[in-house]
Each structure stands twice: as structure tokens, then as C-alpha cells.
Nucleic acid binder design. Sequence first.
DNA 1: TGAAATCAGACTATTTCAGTCCTATTTCCT
DNA 2: AGGAAATAGGACTGAAATAGTCTGATTTCA
Lengths: 133, 133
Amino acid sequence: MLRLSKRVEYGLMALQYLAKSGGVATAREISDAGQIPYELLAKVMQSLKHEGIIDSYQGVRGGYALLFSPESINLARVVRALDEHTTITECISPSGDHDACQMLHTCTIKAPMNKLQQRMEESIGSMTIAELL
Amino acid sequence: MLRLSKRVEYGLMALQYLAKSGGVATAREISDAGQIPYELLAKVMQSLKHEGIIDSYQGVRGGYALLFSPESINLARVVRALDEHTTITECISPSGDHDACQMLHTCTIKAPMNKLQQRMEESIGSMTIAELL
DNA sequence: TGAAATCAGACTATTTCAGTCCTATTTCCT
DNA sequence: AGGAAATAGGACTGAAATAGTCTGATTTCA
Ligand code: SF4
Ligand code: SF4
């Protein structure tokens, strides 16, 4: 249940790389350094861009760079950018979705699961990219 | 990545039920009460039994009962009993497996992931069945 | 103008998960 | 003794999520 996806792992490696380099790096460069499938990493970088964690520069001599200091990017945000399921249960929806669980009404563990969700988020959010260096 | 499996959800409901009832309850009874697929729940109960969280009684008038007080059963243990992946990465294996990741040697995020694993476990382990009542 | 890079979407293959089915065994009650 | 009700355990199927690949478009610099 708490195994992180390859997307997140790759994303963390990439962010770590960008933090270390301090400047602009290409997806190819990061892929080579970390032995990460290039095409998959490319997608990950795009997701990180959309989330606003990194900036991108197109064309030759392009690449990616961090938009914030490593210590101000916490892992919760990275997970939110790269993972489908960011909640412990489907009834806890980040954007108030209505595709919620069927047993929503009869469910007896909904409330405590909410509490757990908070604690988990705190755990993940307590770590930053700076702690990967 | 942190969506808990149905097995865990059902397991928590069942343990909550057992804690509330205080005595012996059958899988059928719990299944009916929580609208849980009976066959799947039956498997879950068996897993909980194997982990040593509950005791079972076979035959007519049989069923399941808690082996410990609700406040001494934490969710980390439940997850361990019911979930395949209890670690954040595959290189963190509970029983020192050797099916570890290929990039184990070149990986640059292994150490911090270990730290995160600990924090996550603390979060999950900090909640007990008693908090579901 | 061409090479190198991001951007975007569709696609396939693999693995995981939820759920079902079937049979054996145990135990109580009549 | 025998049947009903329960757990035990394995095999199986279908659906869904994930990992990875492919193709083409666009941007930008030299
Ligand atoms: S309502 Fe209950 S069963 Fe449904 S997703 Fe939420 S916690 Fe799980
Ligand atoms: S070694 Fe690195 S890449 Fe492999 S599982 Fe561990 S953290 Fe992930």
C-alpha cells in the first residue's frame, strides 16, 4: 500500500540531480546519470513542470531547473505531482470528487481514516529535497 | 502510492467490529454488517489469524475474536498482515530479501528513503484499533 | 537549415489487485 | 450418526493500475 511508484522515485532522483547541479540539466543527462528510462523520465519532468516545481527551457541547450530552493520543496508536493493516488482512501478526494466510494454512508472507518491521512501527509511533507543531498 | 488496499480496509472494518462486539463473530456476520464480499473477507480473516492478531474457532458456532486489546493492536501490524508491499521501496525489504532493485548500487536516494520509511511506519503505527471505535 | 531539446498523446505489455469458485476439514446440534 | 455451519486453503478469472515504448509536433540555438 505504501510502495511509491517508479514515477515518484525517478522524480526524486531528478530533483536531487537538479538540486546538486544547481542549474539547468536535460532529461537525457539525468536519465543517463541515473539509468532511468529516458521516455518515462521525460514524462515525469513534464508533470513536475505542470505542478510548478521546475521550469523548462525548450530547444537546443534547453532543459530543466528548480523553481525553488531544495529545502522549500517537500515530498508531499512531489507525490501530488507524480502520483495518481495521493489519498489513503477513495472517499478522501483532494478536489471533492463525487466518484466516491459506494459504502460511503454505511462505512464505519471513514472518520479515523481521515485522521490517518493527515498524519501520513505530515510524514511525507516533513521531508524536503534538501534532505536528499 | 499510499492508497490502502481493499484487504486492509476490510481488515480494519472487521477488527473494529470484533472490538465493538467484544466477543466472537463470524466472517458472514461481519460481511453482512459491512457489505463486504464474503469470500474476500474470509481470506482477510485468515491472514489476520496467521499474523496472530485474532484467534479462530472452527465448526458450527465458530468465528473469530481479538487476541489482544484494541489499544494494543496498531495499524502497522494490520498492514503487515494484509498488504503485499509494506515498504516504501523494494530495496527496503522487511526480511532481507535478495530480490532487491537493480540500481541498488548506483541509486542516490536509497538512504533518505530509509529515513522516510521510518517516519511513515511511525505514522501508521501510531494509530490503534481503539481509535476506530 | 538541421540538430537537440521539450511537449503531447496514443499505445502496449506487465504486474497487481479484487473478486470468485471449489473443495476439504472441523465442530456443534439434533 | 449425520447434517449444517463454520473456518482453511488453493486455484482461477477479470479488471485496473503501472511501467515502458513509440510517434510526431514544436521550439530554439548554432
Ligand atoms: S467510505 Fe469507507 S469503505 Fe469507502 S473509501 Fe472511504 S473508508 Fe473506504
Ligand atoms: S535502490 Fe534506489 S531505485 Fe532501487 S528500490 Fe531502492 S530507492 Fe528505489
